[in-house]
Design a protein around this nucleic acid. Structure first.
Length: 259
DNA sequence: ATGGCTTCATAGTGAAGA
């Protein structure tokens, strides 16, 4: 089954792009971030008509996450257990025997911001929870907008980004901490073109000049790695009119759907 | 150049994103 993640930057604005993309890419599961929509406004029926069940956790203006799936969705978890957070950034569910964890990791704003401290605490809480979750669900995938470029090769201009959030050493250490739980960055399991990114600033014609970062990731547990056959970034939606600044990432896992 | 663009919000001297 194919699993995707996409920060849509407003589901209300991007719904036509999402529906169009799902017709061309009928993935089994897609995790969405920055839906920026209250649950009462979530387009559940429209997505159902497009063949997708959905679970979602949203709020007005900011954040908001959702999981859509062609298969039944069970064991839905909202937020990180025992971590108090007003911001809707996590939703998890079990689909075809795979624990799907959808995250919108905080941006952090700047290294001297309170939001950066929140980001690091948040990552620490995520790590603690996932350690337990991996025990319960050996087949686990962590998909989302991580707001972390793991290595310099994930940054168009590493020297220019020094001192910024998304590339700082503590954030990268937190990313490595997730790998130390036994997760693998599925994108790096395969041969990839150089300068492959998943986000480009709206300004400065950044997309046309490929001034991007790879900050959207699909990490998979040991039990899934041997079944993972590809991971690709789909740049096509970034070329549309009024695009999201992020573009989808898709991993293919060869497992029995009936399990 | 602390800018640029986009979103949601409100009608701001805006806030936040990445």
């Amino acid at each position: 089954m194919r699993l995707a993640t996409w920060n849509v930057n407003s589901l209300k604005v991007r719904l036509p792009h999402l529906l169009e993309w799902l017709v061309a890419n009928p993935v089994e599961v897609i995790c969405l971030q920055e839906t920026k929509q209250q649950d009462t406004d979530f387009p559940q029926e429209t997505l159902q008509e497009a063949g997708y069940n959905s679970v979602f956790s949203g709020q007005k203006t900011y954040n908001g996450v959702a999981i859509l799936s062609r298969s039944p969705i069970s064991e839905v978890q909202f937020g990180i257990p025992d971590f108090v957070d007003e911001q809707k950034r996590v939703i998890a569910a079990t689909i075809n025997g795979v624990r799907v964890v959808c995250v919108y990791i905080p941006n952090g704003q700047s290294l001297d911001s309170d939001k950066y401290q929140y980001k690091l605490k948040w990552l620490s809480a995520l790590n603690r929870w996932l350690a337990l979750e991996l025990h319960k669900h050996p087949k686990l995938a962590l998909l989302g907008d991580y707001n972390i470029a793991p290595e310099d090769r994930d940054v168009h201009d590493p020297a220019g980004w020094v001192g910024n959030v998304l590339v700082s050493e503590p954030e990268r250490a937190a990313f490595q901490g997730l790998l130390q739980l036994g997760l693998r960055d599925s994108f790096r399991m395969f041969e990839q073109a150089d300068k492959a990114y998943s986000w480009w600033d709206y300004r400065m014609m950044a997309f046309r000049r490929n001034m991007g970062l790879r900050i959207d990731h699909i990490l998979i547990s040991e039990a899934l790695t041997k079944h993972c056959t590809s991971c690709v970034i789909d740049k096509a939606p970034r070329k549309l009119e009024r695009p999201s600044d992020h573009t989808p990432v898709v991993a293919e896992i060869q497992i029995d759907k009936e399990k």
